[in-house]
């Protein structure tokens, strides 16, 4: 068993690995929560435009106190700045960009992912429904959808399943899953383990994954948090 890292270190490790999905020149939508953190690790040599579905193409850094503009927020409702060369638009146009597959990449959180790429990340039956926000549109709009999440839930049960138990956000929409323990790709043959984190064995990952895993011939080590 790998040494248990603290939660913040695990989130940072996942976010840093997710950053590697972003190529220079990409238009990217980052979901609310851990995906938003990915922005903190974007390498300065990459030219990336972050899209916020509330109508901002070009999210900048957080504002200094004197720069705060209450009319300028991201989709997580946090105050932000606009990057140099940013553009504002209305919500219909913003989702036209998304639905029209103009985004290169979306990085979102997940509760469950199935081996065929089904995603559940918006509701738990019996708990108050908050709403799906833009997630159902975003999973259909990006050229690539990457889900970042813990490999297992807080009870240690798998979150990567043969079939999702929770109501879906989208059917067959996920391309890649990045967890604290592995990177997996949804392929025509099935779910393929392509990277494994330091300290874990393939057998352990198989045990913690309900979905059938195909092991890549070129299995790589996941970069550690350092």
């Amino acid at each position: 068993m790998a040494v248990q890292k603290d939660k913040a270190a695990i989130r940072e490790m996942i976010a840093r690995r997710a950053e590697q999905e972003i190529k220079s020149g990409y238009y990217v939508n980052l979901g609310i929560g851990m995906p938003t953190m990915v922005a903190n690790y974007i390498q300065p040599d990459k030219e990336v435009v972050l899209q916020s579905e509330n109508g901002l193409l070009g999210i900048g850094r957080s504002p200094y106190e004197h720069e705060v503009d209450p009319d300028l927020i991201n989709a997580g409702k946090e105050t932000v700045t606009a990057s140099v060369g940013a553009a504002y638009c209305d919500s219909a146009e913003s989702f036209a960009m998304i639905r029209g597959e103009h985004l290169d990449l979306a990085i979102l959180g997940g509760m469950e992912v199935a081996e065929n790429g089904d995603l559940a990340n918006w509701m738990i039956p019996g708990k108050m429904i908050k709403g799906m926000g833009g997630a159902m549109d975003i999973v259909h709009g990006s050229k690539k959808v990457v889900i970042i999440m813990d490999h297992v839930n807080k009870h240690g049960d798998p979150k990567i399943l043969k079939e999702c138990k929770l109501p879906l956000t989208g059917k067959g929409v996920v391309d890649r899953i990045i967890t604290d323990r592995a990177v997996m790709d949804v392929t025509d043959e099935g779910l393929k383990l392509v990277e494994i984190a330091e300290g874990w064995t393939v057998d352990e990952i198989k045990e913690q994954t309900e979905a059938e895993l195909i092991i890549s011939d070129e299995l790589l080590k996941m970069p550690s948090s350092k």
Binding site: A92, S94, F95, R99, I129, M132, G133, D137
Partner: peptide, 15 residues
Amino acid sequence: EVELTPQGTLAEKIR
């Protein structure tokens, strides 16, 4: 009564 609608769908329904 609540009718939850995906955000992009809501925007497009109104448009």
